[in-house]
């Protein structure tokens, strides 16, 4: 049995469309496993369901069907009190550090509040921990009594990280944590997140549209398209040997910072279809350069390519009729 911190089983989320009986198929049956101490990258373009996945995993929203297991416990089966206790082990870092910090609270209050709710420690101990957290994220003691508006975007994201760490979580959802930041500051925050993971033994679900950042951070990667995982493998394998045509297109569309490597791209035509009226068969068939008759009627299943992997870490799953032996 792999040592999974988080696992989803056939997770489904549909949102109602106002004034209609239609639904938005945001997540359509996703199985994910995140192992202890690793980073699982979740990538895809807008509307693929990756942000909804992050919310579902923390049970910030209720799934339509399926389960989320945290260290083997089904979140949906927990009582309110139990859920609250488990929540302190799960934290999230949001994209926009300008919206996620209360402007009326000082840094000290922002960091103390989650401890008051979740940790049974004295006021003196809380105050000591605030100092420790500031140091851990590269802020200084003098920042303790300042307010969010006095900080730059990068520093605010450091405060948000310190707040998440305040309750000693095991598992963090990082939802586009650097997308709102300048390039030179992004690198600082990615380095910080990596160092914290190493020092504190954290487990990450790293959600991003930025494939370079995802590759840099992740041990394994899952690619989503229209609510489904289309491919998942070790990070290196995904970039060196992508199997799904969508993954191939994504990887070849990444702007490479080497002008000598301007390459021929796997060009996708058209746009992502509406998640309200999903295409029949494989959801990608409307844009796939290798589409076959079968793809228009029959949806492929996520399955192991190239033999059986003995361990999840080596597993390379693809959902495409091209790699389907049948």
């Amino acid at each position: 049995m792999p040592d999974a911190v988080m696992e989803t089983r056939h997770l489904v989320k549909q949102f109602p469309v106002e004034g209609s009986r239609d639904v938005v198929h945001a997540v359509s049956g996703v199985d994910l496993i995140v192992l202890r101490g690793e980073t699982l990258g979740l990538v895809g373009e807008s509307g693929c369901g990756k942000t909804t996945m992050g919310r579902l995993v923390l049970r910030l929203i209720e799934p339509t069907a399926g389960e989320v297991l945290i260290e083997g416990r089904d979140l949906g089966a927990l009582s309110k009190r139990e859920l609250r206790r488990v929540r302190s082990e799960l934290q999230i870092i949001f994209q926009n550090p300008f919206a996620s910090l209360n402007p009326r609270m000082s840094v000290e209050e922002i960091l103390r509040r989650p401890m008051e709710i979740h940790l049974r420690i004295s006021a003196a101990e809380r105050s000591r921990r605030v100092g420790l957290l500031l140091e851990q994220v590269g802020l200084r003691e003098e920042h303790r009594n300042r307010f969010p508006h006095e900080f730059s975007g990068g520093q605010r994201q450091r405060i948000a990280i310190a707040r998440a760490l305040a309750v000693e979580p095991k598992f963090l959802v990082l939802d586009e944590p650097t997308s709102a930041l300048d390039v030179s500051v992004q690198a600082q925050i990615l380095n910080l997140l990596k160092r914290l993971q190493r020092d504190l033994g954290l487990t990450y679900l790293f959600i991003s549209h930025d494939l370079s950042a995802v590759r840099h951070m992740s041990d394994r990667i899952a690619v989503m398209y229209l609510g489904k995982v289309v491919e998942t493998s070790a990070s290196e394998t995904l970039f060196n040997d992508p199997q799904h045509p969508y993954t191939k297109a994504l990887v070849s569309a990444i702007p490479v910072t080497n002008p000598r490597l301007r390459r021929e791209r796997v060009r996708l035509t058209g746009d992502i279809p509406s998640p309200i009226h999903l295409p029949k068969g494989c959801a990608f068939h409307t844009r796939c350069p290798f589409v076959m008759d079968r793809c228009r009627t029959e949806g492929p299943v996520l399955q192991e390519t190239g033999g059986s992997a003995s361990h999840l870490v080596e597993s390379h799953l693809v959902s495409c009729h091209l790699v389907d032996p049948a």
Binding site: V183, S184, V185, Q186, A187, Q188, L190, N191, K194, L211, S212, A213, R215, H216, E236, F239, I254, V256, T257, N258, L261
Partner: peptide, 16 residues
């Protein structure tokens, strides 16, 4: 140096 390279694996980024 701040941009993660897509064609090589680095442990740390050379941030400014």
């Amino acid at each position: 140096g701040s941009i993660p390279k897509i064609d090589e694996k680095q442990e740390w980024l050379a941030a400014i």
